[in-house]
Amino acid sequence: MTFVYRPSGPFRWMLEKFSSISEWSLVGSISAEERSLAAISELSLIGKLDHLSCLRIEPSSGRKPNRFRSEIMRKLNTRQRETEGIVGVGLLCTTVDLLCREEDLIRAIRDCLSPCGPNLVLDISSMPKRFFFPLIALAIRSGNFENILVSYSSPKSYGEPLAEDPLPWSALPTFGATDLSKDGKLIIGVGYQSLRLHEIVDGVLNPDNVELLLPFPSVHPGFTKNWEFVRKIRMQIDRLQERSIKRVPAKNTSIAFDRIVGSSNRGANPCKLAPFGPKPVSLAMCLFGVCCQDKNIPVELGYTQPQVYSDKYSVGIAAGIDGNPIIHAYAIKLNGHSLYQF
C-alpha cells in the first residue's frame, strides 16, 4: 500500500481540479473506434486543447489477408476528418503501420511528443498496447512534462472477434528483458481473448508463482469472457490455485499497481507481466514496468500482438446518465513527480 494519493476520476472533473492550467497538449490516436474522439472532444469543448498529436495506426501493409482492411481504412479517413473538424488544421497526424519496426514506432511517438507543452494528456482509449506502453514510458521519462494525465474512454460495446492471428509472445517495445529467474512471478491481466498466452503459460514451473488479475466487478458479457479466459489458463496450469485469482477493479489503476507491487514483493521477485486485461489494469502494469526499469529491477512486459484488428473492435462511446461520454482520467505525474513509484 501507499500513502500517496493518486488522483483519478472523470476526465472533466479532473481537468477542473487543474483549474490553474489553461492549456493541455493531447497525444491520442486516429482509430476506427469512435471512442478515440471522446477525450479530444471533451478537452476541446472546454477550450483547453492547446495542441493535438495523433498516431494514425493503419492495418499492416505486409499482412495478408486482412478482411477488415478496407473498412478500417474508410473509418480511419472518417475519423481523421472528424478530428480535423474538432481542432482545425493544427492536428499533427503521424501515420504508422500497426506492425511497423519499433524504430519507426518510437520515432513516431517522439514526433508526437516533441511539440507538446508541459501539461500532457495521453489518450490510450484506442491505442494498441504496442504503442501506448512505449508512449507512457517515454513521456514519463521525458523531462519536458510537468503534469501527465492518462485518459481512457469506454465503448458502448465490444465486437466479436476483437482481433486475429496473434504473433508469438514478444516483449512490448521498450520492455524487453532476459535472465528472469524461473521462480519469478507471472502476472496475467485477465481479458477477453487469451490469444497465444499459452506460450508463456506452458513454461510455468510453479503454479504458485502465477497471479491472475481478474477485473471485478465485471458484467455480462465481459464477465463470461473473463471466466472463459481463466478457464483456458487453468486447462494449461492444472494445479493453479484459487488464491491465484486476485480481483482488481477494472478501472482503478492505482489499486492494480499496488497489487502488482505487493505480488512482486516490491520488486524482490522478478516479474513477467502479460497485459491482456482492461486498459487501466494494463496501464498499471506499464507503470510498474517503468518503475522497475528505473530501479534496474528485471521486468518483462510482453504481449502476443494481433496482426489484424476488427473494424468493429468496439462500437460507440459509453455515456453516463447525463448523456455525456464516460471518460476516466488517471494522473500519473504531478508537478514533475511521478505518482506511481515504490
Binding site: 519496426r101 519499433e102 524504430e103 508469438p168 509472445w169 514478444s170 516483449a171 517495445p173 524487453g176 528483458a177 532476459t178
Partner: peptide
C-alpha cells in the same frame, strides 16, 4: 525468441 536476439530486427 527468449533471448531477445531477434529484436535487433526492430532497430
Amino acid at each position: 525468441s527468449n533471448s531477445l536476439v531477434l529484436k535487433f530486427t526492430e532497430r
